[in-house]
Design a protein around this nucleic acid. Sequence first.
RNA 1: CGCGGAGUAGAGCAGUCCGGUAGCUCGUCGGGCUCAUAACCCGAAGGUCACAGGUUCAAAUCCUGUCUCCGCAACCA
Length: 515
Amino acid sequence: MSASYYITTAIDYTNAPPHLGHAYEKIAADVLARWNRLDGADVFFLTGVDEHGIKIEKAAALQGVTPEEFVGGITPQFVSTWSTLGVQYDRFIRTTDAYHEESVQRAFALLVEQGDIEKARYEGLYCAGCEEFKNERELVDGRCPQHDAVPQNFAEDNYVLRIGKYRERIREHILSHPEFIQPESRRNEVLNLLDTFPDVSVSRQKVRWGISVPGDDSQVIYVWVDALLNYITGVGWGWDDALFSRYWPASVHVVGKDIMKFHCIIWPAILMALELPLPRTIHGHGWVHVGDQKMSKSLGNAVEPNALAARYGADALRYYLMREITYGKDGTYTLEAFKLRVNADLANNLGNALNRTLGMLEKQFAGVVPSDLPAITKELADRVTMVQEQAARHMRQFEIQEALEVIWGLIDAVNKFIDTQAPWALAKAGDMEKLGGVLYGVLESLRAVTILVSPFVPQLAEKMWLQLGISSDLQSQRLKDLAWGGLQSGTQTRKLGPVYPRIEDELAEAGVKKK
RNA sequence: CGCGGAGUAGAGCAGUCCGGUAGCUCGUCGGGCUCAUAACCCGAAGGUCACAGGUUCAAAUCCUGUCUCCGCAACCA
């Protein structure tokens, strides 16, 4: 029985369509899920959307539709975007799903019963125009900037989650589990916050669009309890015990660095109150900047991932984001860098290596894979083994960029091998045995490459696999199948042209602008 | 003294935890090859590793201080 690997993403807020930042996180999680599947793990990948809350309630009202109708228009855009980008999840959860709502109510009731959630008075400055509480930083000269009105002191009865009760246990867990908060730089930040982290209000009177507090219809359950619980309701907590015990605790929650504190403090408190084990790792990724700006709707610079994928291919976008950005740190997206990176790595190195090889194979061997000549190909065989080990180590440590670097190092080695062995000269000299050995070495290396890159650029890998003519399914391949010699001589390849054509447009212009 | 991140070749970045020839991609220059998607291979030029001190035989890396830029800052997925 293989080890389980349960990976989740943050659930996106459906008050606006998906942008590049949403896509980055889902792609990263998808790559990790696919890699671990390749590594033989029993993988469950959960993603989804948060459809509740005041912002959606308001956005819907603005358009004169119900919240249900509103999210009914947005959520499918997330679903179709992930489909376009090859994000292959096992479940897509919506916080309006019945199984989720019921389980959240059950959890809430349990926590109230145990005294982890208590009723308390919430006081704040309330702006009637915005219909929400304001904190002092949001005010200009004590007035709400949107409505130029002085907010009123207002109090309501709320339900409050007693974080303090679990503070020491959480601290202890963080200190004794170095892998719990990743990257490490986030750890101290969370530990700092933990000391002063207050009890949090987990219900709202003013909000209608949400899950009702059990036994108190005057309030809805607030985002922290509602949304965070998706990680357990999504794998069957409260409705499918077998599924739940198979996958919980999660291997990793992939989230943005901004919401690390909620995942590292509130979520553990809830889990401890429910007497459930904590996830192994919470991993905070950085932001994707556009040019030199932070991507945001107000700046109007949000990049639409569907358009990019439609024009240049989903794999190009996946590859760029994973290769160009150090996972865990902030990174930058520019169309120029995107084209350069994709052309160099996908077209020139990866695609061309296969194409040039199949060309020779077709001419000299009618496209049929010849026999290995171990004396010549040993260096490649050794390289494949080394790359596989290094890549696996990097992926275990969430070093996606480094993993790609070593895999592409193998492609470089293949191209170099071709130049050094000069198969065209062997053909001219009529040394068919050696020529066959050289080509075998290259093809077998490319089979390994195809498997290794499949989690990152799945569609491209499928195209390569098809051209290699291997009958077994690429998705069924595992890391252990990389063992040298897996490619059978006699296999009929299928040369179908470049797997990734170069992006030619605007390149010259971009080169000039770089000065 | 709120918290945190960043400052490394023309550009974009890695390396900093565990001190010891400063690396990658693109660009530039020169050479090779011609199987291939004007792709591939080899070589070269180019860096006071923000600044100032300190520790050390040795510091981009550790310590102290300073400057600049950027996020976050109690309910904003």
